[in-house]
């Protein structure tokens, strides 16, 4: 499963949030960079939540975004951990996770959900209204996706939980053969994820090899 971005550009008014980014990845992608460098915008472009001004994105060689056109996010087979938890406030934690799985058959969904909630340590929160960041991660992992897009998923968790959830995310990706697109500020996290590192600055890839690091 490959993601390919070609000359991807997106502006908001005068700000060029993403400015001519090109890369191709067959595996995990880690995005790092200072605040305001365009990481979230790049992720939203990949998710199909923003339409590029120029350039294109393709998944497995099939175009999914072009200038002025983007395949609906639901049809991309992706799942997301957003920068804010983005849980549905009118649903309980388990309803959030179940609803987030879409049309997965009931029996299968139940088992998968229970297993993940147990491992994330949020089984006891099941009937509560959303408050946990962990729930948003579990929701993304439970969804059958080929890419999981994560925008600083571990922010505001304590060290112990961070480690636990990080292991869960990597483990799930490995088990299901899903690829991660992972935004982080934490170099230690970045180094533990095998794959390509994109280092962004002011909307562009920066650093050696034009910002695309080890593969």
């Amino acid at each position: 499963m490959t993601i390919e971005c070609r000359n991807l550009t997106k502006s908001f008014g005068r700000t060029r949030a993403v400015d001519g980014i090109s890369f191709a990845a067959d595996g995990h992608v880690v995005i790092i960079g200072p605040s305001g460098s365009g990481k979230t915008t790049l992720l939203r472009l990949i998710a199909g939540l923003e339409v590029p001004d120029a350039g294109s994105i393709s998944f497995d060689g099939t175009p999914v975004s072009e200038p002025g056109w983007a395949l609906h996010p639901q049809k991309r087979r992706i799942s997301c951990v957003f920068q804010s938890p983005a849980l549905w406030p009118h649903m309980t934690v388990s309803e959030n996770i179940r609803f987030g799985m879409g049309d997965v058959p009931a029996g299968q969904a139940r088992a998968r959900m229970d297993d993940l909630m147990e491992r994330a340590g949020i089984a006891s929160l099941a009937d509560r209204y959303p408050e946990a960041r962990r729930a948003s991660i579990v929701r993304a992992l439970a969804h059958p996706a080929r890419f999981i897009l994560l925008d600083e998923p571990l922010q505001n968790l304590n060290e112990e939980l961070k480690e636990e959830m990080f292991g869960l995310v990597l483990g799930c990706a490995e088990k299901n053969g899903t690829h991660l697109v992972y935004i982080t500020h934490d170099m230690a996290e970045a180094e533990q994820i095998p794959g390509m590192v994109l280092s962004m600055n002011r909307g562009k890839l920066s650093g050696p090899d034009g910002g695309t690091g080890r593969m």
């Binding site: 998710a47 609906h72 849980l87």
Partner: peptide, 15 residues
């Protein structure tokens, strides 16, 4: 309606 909740749903379901 909080936009993040909306976008989270759009990655899973038709509009």
């Amino acid at each position: 309606v909080p936009p993040p909740a909306l976008e989270a749903a759009r990655t899973v379901y038709p509009d």
